[in-house]
Each structure stands twice: as structure tokens, then as C-alpha cells.
């Protein structure tokens, strides 16, 4: 029989293998299982055969008796099977059959992935550095005044610093749960997400410029952005937790989904006012002959649809007003 000594959170502190019975449990040094607990008697209990091939734990006249950890009930005798827990003083013991079959080992997704592409030092350095360059380039292209390079690099550094704070948070959690920091990996993950965002929004600008009507590029790219975020969160979770891979993705999806839902709900009140505004217009430097265009007449045919839209909108608003009155 294996006796596991558990701490308050249920984590195994110590395991003792008992081969000969009766065996004694108590605070005294002569016991087979020694418990360092002031609420345990020097000789607290004895584990012995019950005469039917089973084991029983018998109290030896202790001050605090034996207690069922679930119900708190005190008892003098407790039949012991594999998996039974009992409290002596303030210590919880769990009995296990050494022949019991165990669950197969968890696949360490984290380790698998971490040792995979992201954990390679050269790649990590390239991603982090690349993100810095991308941030600088992005802010340089968006600036239309005279800007010094130091200013741009400063901005990119501030952004990277914020990412580092995020990564630091995850690394600390990682240290607590897995005794490993893995800071570079936690830094690489948001860098991948950030770079993905920058690239995706650049692609979106070009697509909405080249094919302005018909396809909601913004929504499509927002979807890609969300997917990247879900991946990032799952990758962090894979490193800090022992969750199965499915659970990592589910948690991540739930968190991102909930946040997106809250933001969407918060903005939904403004929908009718801003729907169809011209905020999406992007101008890109392409030679005129490469730009897909329509004739003014074709464009004005599209415009005619707008009249129907606002007329319908007007009718709906009138109906709503009538209802309100």
C-alpha cells in the first residue's frame, strides 16, 4: 500500500510505501509513517489486516481521532481501499494500491510546441527583431511630417516594451506553475500576433482599395486578427498550464470570444449611425492603369441604390417613431 501525504491544496508532498502490516502512523520517530503535525499523536493509528483480506485503519486512542476529509466526521476505524483519504490532525493521507492502473502520461503540448519552431533561439530573435522593424516601418509609412529615425525607433521600442510587460506577466505565471520562466517564448508569441496584425491590416488596406465594393475585407481581416489572438493565448496557456491541447484552445477561444462579444455589444448601439460611413476609403500608390475602375455611369448606378437605402431607413424610423408614440 502507498500512503500519500498531501498538503492543504491536495498536492502530494510525500509518498511512503508500506509492505508489512500492521504499520503505524504518528508523530513519533518509531512509526512507519512519520507525520510532522502537532495535532497528530505520537502513535496515532495503525494500519492492519481486517481478517477478510482487507486493510483497516484503527485509531490508537488519539486526541483528534480519524476524520473523513470530505464530511469532517470523526471515527475510530476506517476500512482502507485504494483512493481512500483520511485526516489525522491537520494532515490528509491518501491510500493507493501500488498495482492500480494509472492514466497514461499527459502529452506535454507545451514542450512539444516549445521545443518546436517557436523555441528556437535564432527564430525567436528574428521574430522579435522583425516585429521591431515592422513597427518602425509601419509608423514611418503612416507619418506625413518630417520625422527623425530616433523618434520612430522610440515609438517602436515603447510598443515593444509594452509587449515585454505582457510577456513578463506570462513568464511569472509560468515560473509559479511550471518552475520555468520561458520569457523569450512568451515574448515571441505576442510578437507573432502583432506582426500578423500589421501585415493583415496592410493587406486589408490594399484589398479594400483594389476591390472596394462587395467584399467586407475589414470583417475578414478582423477574423484573421481574432484567430491570431486565439492562437497566441493558446500558445501562452500551453506553456503555463498542463491543460490538454483541446482545453487550451477552448479556453483561449472562450476568452477572446467573450471579449469580442462585450466590445461588439458596447458598440452595437451606434450601428445605424455609422454603418456605411466612408471611413474605409484607402488610397494606394498604384499606376492608374493598374487600378480597377468603373465608368462614372456605372458608379452612379450603384449610387441609385443609396436612395432606396435611405428611403427604407426613413420608413423604418417613421414606423419606430409611430410605435414609440
Amino acid at each position: 500500500m502507498i500512503v500519500e501525504i498531501l498538503d492543504r491544496r491536495g498536492t502530494v508532498r510525500h509518498r511512503v510505501r508500506l509492505v508489512a502490516f500492521p504499520a503505524t502512523i504518528g508523530r513519533g520517530y518509531g512509526n512507519d509513517v512519520i507525520l510532522d503535525d502537532r495535532y497528530v499523536d505520537p502513535l496515532h493509528a495503525r494500519l492492519e489486516w481486517d481478517g477478510h483480506g482487507g486493510l483497516v485503519l484503527v485509531d490508537q486512542g488519539s486526541v483528534n481521532l480519524l476524520r473523513d476529509p470530505a464530511s469532517g466526521q470523526r471515527t475510530r476505524q476506517l476500512p482502507v481501499r485504494s483512493g481512500v483519504e483520511v485526516r489525522l490532525g491537520r494532515t490528509t493521507l491518501r491510500f493507493l494500491d501500488p498495482a492500480a492502473t494509472l492514466e497514461p502520461a499527459l502529452r506535454d503540448g507545451a514542450v512539444g510546441e516549445a521545443d518546436g519552431p517557436i523555441a528556437r533561439p535564432l527564430l525567436m530573435a528574428a521574430v522579435i527583431l522583425g516585429t521591431g522593424v515592422l513597427l518602425t516601418l509601419n509608423s514611418w509609412l503612416g507619418k506625413t511630417d518630417r520625422t527623425r529615425f530616433s523618434e520612430l525607433a522610440g515609438e517602436a521600442l515603447i510598443a515593444l516594451l509594452m509587449v515585454m510587460v505582457w510577456a513578463g506577466g506570462w513568464a511569472l505565471v509560468n515560473r509559479i506553475t511550471q518552475q520555468r520562466f520561458r520569457f523569450p517564448e512568451h515574448l515571441t508569441i505576442p510578437c507573432v500576433v502583432l506582426s500578423g496584425y500589421i501585415v493583415a491590416s496592410a493587406v486589408e488596406e490594399w484589398l479594400s482599395f483594389l476591390v472596394p465594393e462587395g467584399i467586407a475585407w475589414g470583417t475578414l481581416i478582423a477574423g484573421i486578427g481574432l484567430a491570431l489572438t486565439v492562437w497566441g493565448l493558446a500558445a501562452h496557456l500551453a506553456r503555463v498550464s498542463t491543460l490538454s491541447r483541446t482545453a487550451q484552445w477552448l479556453w483561449s477561444l472562450t476568452v477572446v470570444g467573450a471579449l469580442t462579444g462585450v466590445v461588439t455589444l458596447a458598440n452595437s448601439g451606434d450601428q445605424p449611425e455609422f454603418a456605411g460611413a466612408n471611413s474605409a476609403s484607402q488610397l494606394k500608390p498604384l499606376p492608374a492603369r493598374w487600378i480597377p475602375t468603373v465608368t462614372p455611369a456605372e458608379f452612379l448606378t450603384e449610387v441609385d441604390q443609396l436612395k432606396e437605402d435611405v428611403d427604407q431607413l426613413n420608413d423604418r424610423m417613421a414606423e419606430r417613431d409611430a410605435e414609440a408614440e
Partner: peptide
């Protein structure tokens, strides 16, 4: 009413 817009390259 709120505005409605359309965009296009002409």
C-alpha cells in the same frame, strides 16, 4: 436619417 455611403474607383 443617418447617412448611407458608397465608394468606388472611377
Amino acid at each position: 436619417t443617418p447617412q448611407r455611403c458608397t465608394t468606388g474607383n472611377v
